[in-house]
């Protein structure tokens, strides 16, 4: 479904991503783990078109994304929940969700999908007239996820969804990621919380300073000595 080949991203003279290749197949949960500054967010931004790839290709079902403007990519079925949520703080929960469906024309279906999102995150429904900026961190994460789901993506990119959340909320968020995947959405998950991420992933990649150093199934990597030492505190 999503195939990244020899991707390089540069910020000025600095090469942040040094030629990585990976893929996400239909229906999978794939996770990319790595430390701060490894290039996880840069990779996500390159896929969504927010930063330009210097070299390499990113293909979504055979369409080349590196040449597609960022605002067209979501219409092709790829939505991203960005790092730090980035909800529109001065708009209401409902307005945020409607913005998530910005390119869609099927009004009736949108209303149904909004109900689906509210079913997944009942707390958003309670707060739908509230400004997004007044929500707690966990609620904002839910809103960012709901907003991305409103685009009806076939693949959802999640960038550090557990960042800054209490352990209880992290469990809830991971539970919901599982649920979204069970309903048929492919998932690419970037996480610092390696333990949780590897536990739900079908396959996983380890990103270190711009290069992929390890790959395997979630279970393989969770049991890998190097991964345990570097990311699982063991």
């Amino acid at each position: 479904m999503l195939k990244v080949t020899d991707l390089k991203v540069k910020y000025g003279m600095i090469e942040a991503i040094k030629g990585i290749s990976f893929e996400v197949r239909d229906g999978e949960i794939v996770t990319m783990i790595g430390a701060n500054g490894a290039g996880k967010t840069t990779t996500m931004h390159a896929i969504s078109g927010l930063v330009k790839a210097a070299e390499g290709s990113i293909k979504l079902d055979d369409v080349e994304l590196t040449k597609t403007p960022a605002n067209k990519i979501v219409g092709m079925g790829l939505a991203q929940v960005p790092e730090g949520r980035r909800v529109f703080a001065e708009q209401t929960v409902e307005e945020n969700l409607i913005l998530g469906a910005y390119l869609r024309k099927d009004k009736a279906k949108m209303a149904e999908d909004m109900e689906e999102v509210y079913k997944l995150f009942p707390r958003l429904k309670e707060r739908r007239k509230q400004l997004a900026g007044t929500l707690s961190g966990g609620e904002q994460q839910m809103l960012a996820m709901g907003r991305a789901l409103m685009a009806k993506p076939s693949i959802l990119l999640l960038d550090e969804p557990s960042m800054g959340l209490s352990p209880l909320l992290v469990s809830e968020i991971f539970h919901i990621i599982r649920e979204i995947n069970d309903k048929g959405t492919t998932i690419l998950l970037v996480e610092q919380n390696a333990k949780r991420a590897l536990a739900i992933a079908d396959r996983a990649y380890v990103l270190e300073t711009g290069s992929i150093t390890l790959e395997g199934t979630g279970e393989e990597l969770a049991n890998d000595e190097r991964v345990q030492k570097a990311y699982l505190g063991g």
């Binding site: 969504s48 078109g49 927010l50 403007p69 960022a70 605002n71 067209k72 979501v74 219409g75 939505a79 991203q80 960005p82 980035r86 909800v87 529109f88 703080a89 001065e90 708009q91 913005l99 998530g100 910005y102 390119l103 907003r147 991305a148 685009a151």
Partner: peptide, 16 residues
């Protein structure tokens, strides 16, 4: 209003 808050996030929504 979305663009005035966060252009990157707006692009992710599909806003030109």
């Amino acid at each position: 209003r979305a663009c005035s808050e966060d252009k990157g996030a707006s692009m992710l929504m599909g806003i030109n």
